[in-house]
Computed example of a mutant assay.
Amino acid sequence: MSEQMSVANKEKLVSDLKVVISDTEELLRATAGAAGDKVGELRERLGVRLRDAKERLLDLEAAVIDKTKAAARATDDFVHEEPWKAVGVAAALGLALGVLIGRR
């Protein structure tokens, strides 16, 4: 369960980083015509950091995909090795959801 939360947290982080990168790219485009040494230096630093963030984002995204695939393979292996246990777990979850929904 904690591994699933970890994957969910990583997916949220990837999503948040994509938003930050998009906003930074927009900021860089908006200040393209601005003059001044400080603005130029800031644009240059942001550009370098943006490239670094994109590289890290790609690495993180690949890690999330690998973990998700590993979890899916483990689940598939479990279902093939222990089909009756999988059916029992699914039935128990279905019953629990039915009871919860029935109370409303």
Rank of each mutant, 00 (worst) to 15 (best):
L93P: 01
A8M: 14
K69M: 08
V14P: 09
R51C: 12
L95R: 04
G40Y: 08
A70V: 00
T75H: 11
M5I: 10
L93W: 08
N9G: 06
L97D: 10
A35W: 02
K12I: 09
L27E: 09
P83A: 15
L50Y: 03
E11F: 06
K67S: 06
E26K: 15
L93T: 09
A70P: 00
L50R: 12
A63V: 09
K85V: 12
A90D: 10
I65M: 05
R56D: 13
A86G: 03
Q4P: 00
A63K: 13
A72P: 00
S22F: 12
A86I: 00
A34V: 11
D77P: 01
S2T: 11
V79D: 05
V20R: 15
L28N: 04
L57D: 02
G33K: 08
I101H: 01
K54S: 05
L46K: 00
I101C: 00
L46Q: 03
E41P: 01
V87E: 14
L42I: 10
S15K: 13
K38H: 07
V7L: 14
L57A: 05
D16C: 03
A92Q: 12
E11P: 01
G94Q: 03
V99L: 15
W84N: 06
V19N: 12
A92L: 15
W84P: 00
I21N: 08
V87Y: 09
E61L: 01
V14S: 14
V39G: 01
L13H: 11
L46F: 10
G94W: 01
A91W: 03
A63L: 12
D77K: 15
A70N: 02
A62L: 03
N9S: 14
K10H: 04
K10E: 03
D16Q: 15
R103A: 15
A62V: 01
L13E: 09
E44C: 04
D37C: 02
A30C: 06
S15M: 08
L60N: 06
T75N: 11
G47D: 08
R56W: 09
S6D: 13
S22P: 02
K18T: 11
L17Y: 05
F78P: 00
K18G: 13
M5C: 10
R73V: 02
D16P: 05
F78I: 00
E3P: 01
V64T: 07
S15Q: 10
A96N: 02
D77E: 15
H80L: 11
A63R: 14
E44G: 06
S6G: 10
D66A: 11
V64C: 09
E61K: 05
R56I: 04
T75K: 13
P83M: 14
I65P: 00
M1I: 06
A90I: 02
V48D: 08
L100H: 04
L97P: 00
A34Y: 11
F78E: 04
G47Q: 09
R103W: 07
A35H: 04
L42D: 04
A53C: 10
W84L: 10
G36F: 07
L57P: 03
K67G: 00
A74K: 14
Q4N: 08
A70C: 00
E3T: 09
L93G: 11
R29Q: 15
I101K: 00
D37R: 07
A91E: 09
T24Q: 11
A8Y: 07
D66M: 04
D59F: 07
V89I: 15
G102C: 08
A35T: 14
A63I: 05
V7W: 06
A86T: 01
